[in-house]
Design a protein around this nucleic acid. Sequence first.
DNA 1: AATATACAGGAAAACGATTTCCGTGTCAAT
DNA 2: ATTGACACGGAAATCGTTTTCCTGTATATT
Lengths: 366, 366
Amino acid sequence: MTVKLSEIAKAAGVSVPTASRALTNSSHPMSADTRERILAVAREMGYQPNLIARSLRTDRTNTIGLIVENILSPFIPPILRGIQDVLRAEGYFSTIINSDWDPVIESEAINDLNNRKIDGIIFVESWHRSSKEIRDKTDKPFVFVHRLFHNQLENTIRVDEIYGARLATGHLAGLGHCKIAYINGPKDWDASKKRLQGYRQELAERNIPFYPEFVQHGDWEAGGGYAAGQTLLGLPDRPTAIFAANDLMAAGAMYAIQDAGLRTPQDIAIVGYDDRYFARIVRPAITTVTLPAEEMGQESARLLLHLIQQQKTTEIGVEVRGKLIVRQSCGAVDQKLVFEDEQGSRAWRSKRSREGVFPDSEEETT
Amino acid sequence: MTVKLSEIAKAAGVSVPTASRALTNSSHPMSADTRERILAVAREMGYQPNLIARSLRTDRTNTIGLIVENILSPFIPPILRGIQDVLRAEGYFSTIINSDWDPVIESEAINDLNNRKIDGIIFVESWHRSSKEIRDKTDKPFVFVHRLFHNQLENTIRVDEIYGARLATGHLAGLGHCKIAYINGPKDWDASKKRLQGYRQELAERNIPFYPEFVQHGDWEAGGGYAAGQTLLGLPDRPTAIFAANDLMAAGAMYAIQDAGLRTPQDIAIVGYDDRYFARIVRPAITTVTLPAEEMGQESARLLLHLIQQQKTTEIGVEVRGKLIVRQSCGAVDQKLVFEDEQGSRAWRSKRSREGVFPDSEEETT
DNA sequence: AATATACAGGAAAACGATTTCCGTGTCAAT
DNA sequence: ATTGACACGGAAATCGTTTTCCTGTATATT
């Protein structure tokens, strides 16, 4: 069923190397005539190269290893999609390993990928050690994307957290709020620090006073947001707006407001962060700053391919920016009901719908 | 840096084939003595086999191709996780291709996977043609998981939709409801038909009359659920409970109820389907039937590995069952506030928390 | 003692491509 | 006419394993 290069060569009346050269656009000179003939024969006979054999000889597999924290983690799939799109366009494949934050699995993963002779590695929200430790384990180029900590910046795709926080804070300020509280993540997270920084920068630039009691810390979960919201509501001079460092805490805070008999956004406006899917489902839908995960994935793949081609081992990383998605919770738009279709936000299912394909209809007749 | 088999052989004073036999647990007889010696040398020298070379010789890559509709589609990541877990335990890798429901991409994908000599293919919510068409394109074994249509059952992992719908309907009936409406998906979807069937079976078995006007059709989206909910509310004899064929429509129906000035669950109880993440975030949190995606992934991987080992090309598929998750929207539990931690529902981030690892803390000192 | 059998291990082939190296033939320059 | 450069294509090596085939030795069987 599968035809090999030697058969193409024989059919075209040339040697195997010549056939190889024709089919791989080798720089080795050859007459346009024979090249054409070989290509024609290959096409006709449906030649498909055995990529394993090619890889053995060339030591390139056109495959990238992706070590991800856990594919179930909310931002990983869009990051992967971004990576895969860029890789596919360049003729690369990928293979994914979940590390579950286990250093042992991470090590094994790198080792496995080495044995499979992949061309490079992307660490997606994974690996909390230094580049140097990784360099000990593999000589392939690698890149980090959305790694949450350490200040190491080389070969890292990261989010401009300060910008995002300013976007959210500035939006609330622009709506006339002067008493804007901030529900942060845990103190020691890098993202927490950066977003707090952005919040304060934006206030300062707008000459809005900063009140330390307006900054609460949550645990990234809805429960923490709820508690933080209650604390803020209990203040003698309570805020008129709350920016939460993620959507989950924003939802929690919103529920605390509702349970206190107040309304969002009329009494207290809310802005979240991340643009998780549920942000558009809850009522009111949460205004938020997107985490541009697909873009980060794309950038990471581009950077890695660049490293592979350039043979350089270090490169400064890339910083991407989210954007503000205005929904009901901030009070900037009217409160009429809006349902954002799932298919509108994501490409998924769009093809089906666009073509009106409902394959089951065939079944109707049976 | 990398040591090859021939060096191990030389160091152990044996020939290359003998070394190979020792390291691969070959059935070829050999003295325990030399085997031990070879293994010791290999361990000491840190031998790692070149899997590309092995694959070229054995024509097995220990890699499975996964053709998925789109990794962004909500159930795909958990299915992939299930697949990956089983594959990893058996020493297999996977490589993912997004088909975006494009038949051309699907064909190319199969072709690419062929060239890479993968050992089998899992189609995840993808491919709407017959097994026969695929068999024309590849001689590797393949399996379908959560394929939404056609009645072809071989090598398919699917959900017992009837069971799930009965679970939801029965739960509402068990709470004393006799007027249970059903918001279905589009008529021509297989899942719609099956779930409707389950709904009717459960009613029949409990001697609850079936009212055709209690069955509405939505478009799987929140907007459709909202509209269907309004219709049901407008009935002269309106239902006291609604079962919706997915969570998105359940949320929409719930909002229609709220906008009509009624309460969930006190006035109208709601049960959804799928256990999407937002179901636990909205208020009241939605009681729902899980779509056991991870389990489906695991089963599909097991089935495929079985096919690979047995060399059989056809096997009857597997049917898995979801389970009921009781939350607030059905009225079965008290209405006190419950926040389900994200980390409680998923494994993600659990490791970090369990170990109290906050790697940024190192940064504190800098 | 002769023969069959099983065991251990090595030589060489094989997997299917790419790359290196070399030998022609052609052409232009001397 | 000789030389050198270059274009073109083939022979052979190569990538690192596994598998087939074979040989020699030790043991068992008659």
